[in-house]
Design a protein around this nucleic acid. Sequence first.
RNA 1: GGAGGAGUACCCAAGUGGCUAAAGGGGACGGACUGUAAAUCCGUUAGCUAAGCUUUCAGUGGUUCAAAUCCACUCUCCUCCA
Length: 408
Amino acid sequence: MANVFDILNERGYIDQSTHEEELKELFEKESVVFYIGFDATADSLTLGHFLQIMVMMHMQRAGHIPIALLGGGTTMIGDPSGKSDMRRVLTREIIEYNAQRFKLQFEKFLDFTDGKAIMANNADWLMDLNFVDFMREIGVHFSVNRMLTFDSYKNRLEQGLTFFEFGYMLMQSYDFLYLFRHHNCKLQMGGSDQWSNIIGGYELIRKLEQEKSYGMTFKLLTTASGIKMGKTEKGAIWLDKEKTSPYEMFQYLRNVDDRDVEKFLALLTFLPMDEVRKLGALEGSEINKAKEVLAFEVTQMIHGKEEADKALEASKALFADGTDAESIPSTDMDEEVFEKGIGILDLMRTVGLIKSNGEGRRLVEQGGVTVDGEKIESSDRVITSTDFNDGKILIRKGKKIYHQIKIK
RNA sequence: GGAGGAGUACCCAAGUGGCUAAAGGGGACGGACUGUAAAUCCGUUAGCUAAGCUUUCAGUGGUUCAAAUCCACUCUCCUCCA
């Protein structure tokens, strides 16, 4: 069986790592406990996090033991790495709640039985730390001069950096030390922006335990146009289907840039690499097949086969012949409303397709609104019961956004 | 505590009494072209009972026929000094 390091490397996850050769050896000879930290800043994980979960799954499959570390404590500080502004401080209750939600989502992807994976929350050891003890035990090992040379802090010097944020690195380093001591955790992984924090922990372990540990970072997943993967203008792609429907997720992946298809297939699916390369090499409109595979595979992993099937069908039906389908966003409304008739603008506003009537007018003027295939010519257009077929109508906004209205 | 600088729409940024709902760029959105891609081109980008109003340039008050622009105070941020 191939070394998991090589697998990760081949699929394009790895950005940098400490001691590549030693790590490979380690992976060969023992079951390595490793951790990735997740800040509990929202009530759901995102597609961006999913990349890291993929790494954990690869590692677990290779017999290693992942620790999903919830940042219950560190979230109270806010990681300054790569952020231009100080992060909003969340209350403890919200963080606790978020951590719970994360936990449920992790359980869908990792096997936590028989200690095959561990869930931890750094609030358990960070919240009760005594400041003086912490400074004496941990603080003395950090050189401010050195910390200031790290990019993540260097950039902040012009903006101003509070001690509050500065302490983040110490806390994360302490996490690694704690997990090393209590779980024999030897490896920390994270996004490439975590490199300096990881090195902090690595050095701390060396100083205090005289033992070797390892670090590895992943490439930040960006699209060819330079945006962080899994982010849209409207916000992140969430793994919680209440926040991002399987259909939306499917569409997001279905619409990725040609240049990103192969990369995404390698990173976000378990398809064998030769197949990934074959799909990525498709030319012209053929590449749409690869995008469909990508969208289906990922949606299936996250939401299950049933939802993925539905999303695929909906997508095909809508784009092939424009008929309606299940599982696209839809709203149920009272029949009464349509007996009286409702203006197209009001209707779109109530279902959330537009934010203001002005926006709606603009769309209509520019020919961007279609109801059941008929282009709306005037923003005075009133929708009544006679527009419905089988108790539903399909509104299309722009080229790709569909919304179905059903009569209750 | 002292000296100076800054705060404009989603972001960057021009504007320093009326011609400014506010240049330009980015982003986003719509259309054309296509492959539900990219690139390109055209258009749009405060709100509304929509052709005339209403609210906007950190906040509050003031001067003026007229304020993003002038004055006063307040808040926030930055730089330098102690």
